[in-house]
Computed example of a mutant assay.
Amino acid sequence: MAIYGYARVSTTDQDLTLQREALMVAGCLVVREEKVTGTTRSGRSELRTLMEFLQPGDTLMVTRIDRLARSIGDLQDIVRELKAKGVALKATEQPIDTSTAAGKAFLDMLGVFAEFETNLRRERQLEGIAKAKAEGVYKGRKPKLDRATILALKAEGLGGSEIARRLKIGRTSVYRLLRSA
Protein backbone atom coordinates (compact mmCIF):
# COMPACT_ATOMS: atom_id res chain seq x y z
CA MET A 1 0.00 0.00 0.00
CA ALA A 2 1.75 3.09 -1.29
CA ILE A 3 0.83 6.68 -2.10
CA TYR A 4 1.70 7.96 -5.58
CA GLY A 5 1.38 11.57 -6.66
CA TYR A 6 0.32 13.10 -9.95
CA ALA A 7 1.09 16.74 -10.77
CA ARG A 8 -0.01 18.53 -13.94
CA VAL A 9 0.05 22.01 -15.40
CA SER A 10 -1.37 23.02 -18.77
CA THR A 11 1.54 24.86 -20.36
CA THR A 12 5.29 24.47 -20.48
CA ASP A 13 5.89 27.88 -18.90
CA GLN A 14 3.96 26.94 -15.74
CA ASP A 15 5.80 25.50 -12.72
CA LEU A 16 5.13 22.20 -10.96
CA THR A 17 7.16 22.97 -7.82
CA LEU A 18 4.25 23.77 -5.47
CA GLN A 19 2.33 20.66 -6.49
CA ARG A 20 5.42 18.45 -6.22
CA GLU A 21 6.23 19.77 -2.73
CA ALA A 22 2.64 19.37 -1.48
CA LEU A 23 2.49 15.80 -2.76
CA MET A 24 5.81 14.88 -1.15
CA VAL A 25 4.64 16.38 2.18
CA ALA A 26 1.45 14.28 1.84
CA GLY A 27 3.61 11.15 1.81
CA CYS A 28 3.92 10.31 -1.89
CA LEU A 29 6.78 7.94 -2.67
CA VAL A 30 6.84 8.95 -6.32
CA VAL A 31 5.38 12.00 -8.08
CA ARG A 32 4.74 11.77 -11.82
CA GLU A 33 4.57 15.16 -13.58
CA GLU A 34 3.21 16.46 -16.88
CA LYS A 35 2.92 19.76 -18.71
CA VAL A 36 -0.09 19.06 -20.88
CA THR A 37 -3.76 20.03 -21.07
CA GLY A 38 -6.18 18.35 -18.70
CA THR A 39 -9.17 18.64 -21.01
CA THR A 40 -8.47 15.20 -22.47
CA ARG A 41 -6.59 12.07 -21.44
CA SER A 42 -4.85 11.68 -24.80
CA GLY A 43 -1.18 12.60 -24.74
CA ARG A 44 -0.92 12.24 -20.97
CA SER A 45 1.71 9.51 -20.83
CA GLU A 46 2.61 10.06 -17.15
CA LEU A 47 -1.01 9.59 -16.08
CA ARG A 48 -1.26 6.47 -18.25
CA THR A 49 1.94 5.10 -16.68
CA LEU A 50 0.58 5.71 -13.19
CA MET A 51 -2.77 4.13 -14.01
CA GLU A 52 -1.02 0.99 -15.27
CA PHE A 53 1.36 0.86 -12.29
CA LEU A 54 -1.09 1.34 -9.40
CA GLN A 55 -1.94 -1.79 -7.39
CA PRO A 56 -4.85 -2.68 -5.07
CA GLY A 57 -4.55 -0.78 -1.79
CA ASP A 58 -2.50 2.06 -3.33
CA THR A 59 -3.60 5.70 -3.27
CA LEU A 60 -3.36 8.19 -6.11
CA MET A 61 -2.83 11.67 -4.67
CA VAL A 62 -3.32 15.01 -6.46
CA THR A 63 -3.29 18.53 -5.05
CA ARG A 64 -6.64 19.45 -6.62
CA ILE A 65 -9.03 17.45 -8.72
CA ASP A 66 -8.66 19.77 -11.73
CA ARG A 67 -5.03 18.60 -11.96
CA LEU A 68 -6.38 15.13 -12.77
CA ALA A 69 -9.23 15.97 -15.17
CA ARG A 70 -11.07 18.98 -16.57
CA SER A 71 -14.08 17.09 -17.88
CA ILE A 72 -16.58 15.17 -15.78
CA GLY A 73 -16.48 12.30 -18.28
CA ASP A 74 -12.71 11.86 -18.00
CA LEU A 75 -12.85 12.24 -14.22
CA GLN A 76 -15.54 9.58 -13.92
CA ASP A 77 -13.59 7.24 -16.23
CA ILE A 78 -10.44 7.68 -14.14
CA VAL A 79 -12.33 7.15 -10.87
CA ARG A 80 -14.03 4.00 -12.25
CA GLU A 81 -10.67 2.64 -13.40
CA LEU A 82 -9.11 3.37 -10.00
CA LYS A 83 -12.05 1.75 -8.18
CA ALA A 84 -11.82 -1.37 -10.36
CA LYS A 85 -8.14 -1.66 -9.40
CA GLY A 86 -8.89 -1.13 -5.70
CA VAL A 87 -7.06 2.22 -5.65
CA ALA A 88 -8.22 5.25 -3.65
CA LEU A 89 -8.05 8.83 -4.92
CA LYS A 90 -7.23 11.68 -2.54
CA ALA A 91 -6.47 15.40 -2.87
CA THR A 92 -4.26 17.48 -0.60
CA GLU A 93 -6.26 20.73 -0.95
CA GLN A 94 -9.79 19.32 -1.14
CA PRO A 95 -11.72 16.88 1.07
CA ILE A 96 -11.64 14.14 -1.52
CA ASP A 97 -11.21 10.52 -0.55
CA THR A 98 -12.97 8.04 -2.83
CA SER A 99 -12.87 5.42 -0.11
CA THR A 100 -15.73 7.34 1.62
CA ALA A 101 -19.23 8.19 0.35
CA ALA A 102 -18.87 11.87 1.26
CA GLY A 103 -15.50 12.07 -0.49
CA LYS A 104 -16.94 10.50 -3.65
CA ALA A 105 -19.90 12.92 -3.67
CA PHE A 106 -17.60 15.91 -3.20
CA LEU A 107 -15.39 14.62 -6.02
CA ASP A 108 -18.34 14.48 -8.41
CA MET A 109 -19.39 18.05 -7.53
CA LEU A 110 -15.86 19.38 -8.05
CA GLY A 111 -15.65 17.57 -11.38
CA VAL A 112 -18.80 19.32 -12.57
CA PHE A 113 -17.37 22.70 -11.55
CA ALA A 114 -14.02 22.00 -13.25
CA GLU A 115 -15.80 21.19 -16.51
CA PHE A 116 -18.04 24.26 -16.12
CA GLU A 117 -14.96 26.46 -15.62
CA THR A 118 -13.34 25.05 -18.76
CA ASN A 119 -16.49 25.72 -20.78
CA LEU A 120 -16.74 29.29 -19.46
CA ARG A 121 -13.10 29.95 -20.35
CA ARG A 122 -13.70 28.60 -23.89
CA GLU A 123 -16.79 30.82 -24.29
CA ARG A 124 -14.87 33.91 -23.10
CA GLN A 125 -12.07 33.12 -25.52
CA LEU A 126 -14.49 32.80 -28.44
CA GLU A 127 -16.22 36.05 -27.43
CA GLY A 128 -12.86 37.82 -27.33
CA ILE A 129 -11.93 36.52 -30.77
CA ALA A 130 -15.32 37.59 -32.19
CA LYS A 131 -14.90 41.07 -30.71
CA ALA A 132 -11.35 41.39 -32.06
CA LYS A 133 -12.54 40.29 -35.50
CA ALA A 134 -15.36 42.83 -35.42
CA GLU A 135 -12.87 45.57 -34.53
CA GLY A 136 -10.52 44.43 -37.29
CA VAL A 137 -7.79 43.58 -34.79
CA TYR A 138 -7.85 39.77 -35.03
CA LYS A 139 -6.52 38.37 -38.25
CA GLY A 140 -6.08 34.75 -37.22
CA ARG A 141 -2.81 32.96 -37.63
CA LYS A 142 -0.65 33.76 -40.62
CA PRO A 143 -1.07 31.27 -43.45
CA LYS A 144 1.82 28.85 -43.71
CA LEU A 145 1.46 28.52 -47.46
CA ASP A 146 2.64 31.36 -49.64
CA ARG A 147 0.91 30.64 -52.95
CA ALA A 148 3.04 33.06 -54.97
CA THR A 149 6.32 31.65 -53.64
CA ILE A 150 5.26 28.06 -54.32
CA LEU A 151 4.18 28.91 -57.87
CA ALA A 152 7.41 30.84 -58.48
CA LEU A 153 9.52 27.91 -57.29
CA LYS A 154 7.51 25.54 -59.49
CA ALA A 155 8.07 27.89 -62.47
CA GLU A 156 11.81 27.65 -61.77
CA GLY A 157 11.48 23.90 -62.37
CA LEU A 158 11.57 22.66 -58.79
CA GLY A 159 9.50 19.62 -57.81
CA GLY A 160 7.01 19.43 -54.99
CA SER A 161 9.39 17.66 -52.61
CA GLU A 162 12.13 20.26 -53.06
CA ILE A 163 9.65 23.14 -52.69
CA ALA A 164 8.34 21.58 -49.45
CA ARG A 165 11.88 21.10 -48.13
CA ARG A 166 12.90 24.70 -48.90
CA LEU A 167 9.75 26.23 -47.38
CA LYS A 168 9.67 23.77 -44.47
CA ILE A 169 6.09 22.74 -45.13
CA GLY A 170 4.39 19.46 -45.92
CA ARG A 171 4.82 17.98 -49.38
CA THR A 172 1.10 17.17 -49.55
CA SER A 173 0.26 20.83 -49.00
CA VAL A 174 2.50 21.83 -51.90
CA TYR A 175 0.90 19.29 -54.25
CA ARG A 176 -2.61 20.29 -53.13
CA LEU A 177 -1.90 23.96 -53.87
CA LEU A 178 -0.31 23.13 -57.24
CA ARG A 179 -3.34 21.01 -58.22
CA SER A 180 -5.73 23.84 -57.38
CA ALA A 181 -3.63 26.42 -59.29
Score class of each variant (00 low, 15 high):
A84E: 14
L50Q: 07
V87Y: 09
V62E: 01
L110H: 07
A22T: 00
L177W: 10
S180T: 12
S45Q: 14
F113M: 14
D97S: 05
V137A: 12
G159F: 08
R32C: 07
D108F: 11
L23Y: 07
G140V: 09
G140N: 04
D15K: 15
I72C: 06
A148G: 06
E93S: 14
I129P: 02
R147V: 12
L60W: 04
L158Q: 15
L178I: 15
G170S: 14
G43M: 07
S71F: 04
V36F: 12
T17M: 03
L145I: 15
A155M: 07
F113N: 03
G103S: 04
I169A: 06
T59V: 15
Y6E: 01
L47V: 04
R8N: 11
R147P: 00
A152V: 00
P95A: 03
R166P: 12
K35Q: 13
E33P: 09
E123R: 06
L177P: 00
G159E: 02
L110M: 15
A22P: 01
Q19Y: 03
A130K: 12
K144N: 12
A148T: 15
Q76D: 06
E21N: 14
G86T: 01
Y138A: 11
G159R: 14
I96K: 05
G73M: 07
K133L: 14
C28P: 01
I3G: 00
D13S: 14
Q55V: 08
L167C: 02
Y6F: 14
E21L: 10
R44P: 00
Q19A: 07
E127N: 10
P56L: 08
M51N: 05
S173W: 00
K142S: 11
D58I: 08
T49Y: 09
R166A: 04
R20N: 11
T39Y: 05
S173D: 08
E117W: 06
Q14P: 01
A7L: 05
T92R: 05
V30Y: 06
T149N: 05
K90I: 02
F106N: 13
G160K: 14
I163C: 09
R41N: 11
E21W: 01
G136M: 08
A130Q: 10
Y138T: 04
C28R: 03
M61C: 15
L89S: 04
A164L: 09
A105H: 11
A132V: 09
R121C: 03
R80M: 08
V62S: 03
L23H: 08
T100K: 03
S71T: 15
D97W: 06
N119S: 10
A26T: 00
L60A: 12
